[in-house]
Simulated scan of single mutants.
Amino acid sequence: MLRVAFDEQIFLLQQAGGVSRYFVELVAQFDTGRFGVQPKLPFHRVWNQHALDGLPEHQLTAVSPLLAPYPDLLRAAARRRRPSAGVDLVHHTFYHPRFLRDFPGIPKVITIYDLIPELLGERGRFGRDPHMAKRDYLAAADAIILISASAEADMVRIYGQPAAPMHVVHLGVGPEFAAGGARPAGLPADYVLFVGRRGGYKDFATLVRAMEQMAPDYPQLDLVCVGGGPFTPEEGALLAASGLDARTRQCTLPDADMPGAYAHARVFVFPSRYEGFGLPVVEAMAAGAPAVLAQTPALAEVGGDAAAYFPAGDADRLTQVLAELLADGARRDELKTAGRRRAQHFTWAETARRTADVYAEVVAAR
């Protein structure tokens, strides 16, 4: 049984999100004992709700809401040295420079999720680039996991070929999404669904412009945004100017309600201009929501022929694709069936199995 430590970086940086969900699901799979990995979490205070809900065996506690997401929490965590005793390997969860000194002499595995700061210039929550030490992590790693072939290509293009071996290991989706569920309370009867953050490269504005063009023909169709926090003043102004403010709602749902939110959507739209993988896409497909995606390398890698596509940022083309789908129930049913079938290729158990294989290779090479 390999003893693998995970640091707390991402659990102090994210309250919710794809990267922290990935590590929670990975640890939960390893906790079953089926993959020859014993996960070790040398910390107990987290800000992340996925970890608090999904890892009860590790007895994690929530930091005070008055402190989170205060950057001093991460800095304080980085000052604590983690000894190497009792650990065969460490899997770092993000790229803070100080965490690289932890577990001296122990093999290191890192995961590259995307190249957003490098390609798009977007910065972190605290005004500094959270990927600032990515190059150092790449140099120190004994193995590099990438969550898509698209992310691998971007990484090599920006940083060059690394010395450590690279492994593409896709993310997964839990069986609860295939089971669907009731429509969550408060959601309308007929809606287009958007999930996650809305700012910057997520390109929520393109979806708003498309919905504005469609509004006269679909007066009963609402826009539901799950997650991402309340609408900003700028988003509120955009919705008001488009006449959609009364037909758009934002809500935060518990993880248990997400399968139902996807399953009851008329269409799921993911207009992001860049992703390393796009976890909501595979969740939507698993739950049977017809998926409409921006035509980008990672989203095409995940969606395959089980989704409809439009050129990223093209509101007119998105309007056309949505109108065609809304008018064609048979086509929506085709996408539902194809999406469910494709989602079966993305499971957290397979993610854990392939990740455990990477760990075993690294330890054997030492």
Rank of each mutant, 00 (worst) to 15 (best):
A51E: 02
D305H: 05
A205S: 13
D357F: 01
L244R: 00
M211S: 03
F6M: 11
A140T: 08
L60W: 05
Q29P: 03
H96M: 04
G186M: 05
G227A: 09
H92K: 07
A300E: 11
G200M: 02
R331D: 06
R79P: 04
G105Q: 08
P233R: 06
T319A: 14
E234C: 04
Q15G: 08
L13I: 13
V109K: 05
A205F: 00
F99M: 15
A330K: 12
L279A: 07
Q9P: 05
A164G: 07
A237T: 12
G54W: 04
R273C: 05
L279N: 08
H91E: 11
A246I: 02
G229R: 14
V19A: 12
F177Q: 10
M258C: 09
V195E: 05
A308D: 00
S64G: 15
V63I: 08
Y137G: 07
P39I: 05
G33I: 06
F194P: 01
L74D: 00
R247D: 03
Y159R: 01
D222P: 02
A287I: 00
G54E: 07
R82Y: 07
F23S: 01
H264F: 02
H264R: 06
A261C: 14
G339T: 10
R266Q: 08
K134L: 15
A356F: 04
K336W: 03
T206A: 14
G127Q: 10
P233C: 04
Y70T: 08
A256I: 09
Y95P: 02
P216K: 05
A365I: 07
Q15M: 12
A163K: 11
F231H: 06
L60F: 12
F94Q: 06
A185F: 07
L239T: 03
V90M: 10
V292S: 01
R21K: 15
A215E: 01
R101G: 11
D7L: 02
Q14C: 12
A261Q: 02
R209D: 00
G313S: 03
R340D: 03
R82G: 03
K202V: 05
G160Q: 12
V358G: 02
Q320D: 14
A261R: 01
V281H: 03
E334D: 15
L73C: 08
F35A: 05
Y159Q: 06
T232K: 11
R98C: 10
L325C: 11
R353E: 12
P259F: 09
G18V: 10
M285V: 09
H58D: 07
R101S: 13
L239E: 00
L207N: 00
A182Q: 09
L74Q: 08
R80N: 14
G160P: 03
V269L: 03
L279M: 14
E234D: 12
R123D: 13
D72S: 14
E8P: 03
M132V: 10
P271V: 05
Y274R: 12
F310V: 00
G181Q: 07
E176R: 15
Y70W: 13
L120H: 08
A356G: 11
F126P: 02
R125V: 14
P56G: 13
G313W: 01
A178I: 02
R331N: 02
G228V: 06
V156M: 10
T232Y: 08
G36V: 07
V87W: 00
R135G: 15
S64N: 11
A330C: 10
D255C: 06
Y137H: 12
A182F: 04
L89F: 10
N48P: 06
S148F: 07
L193K: 05
E57N: 10
L60Y: 06
G304K: 04
Q49T: 12
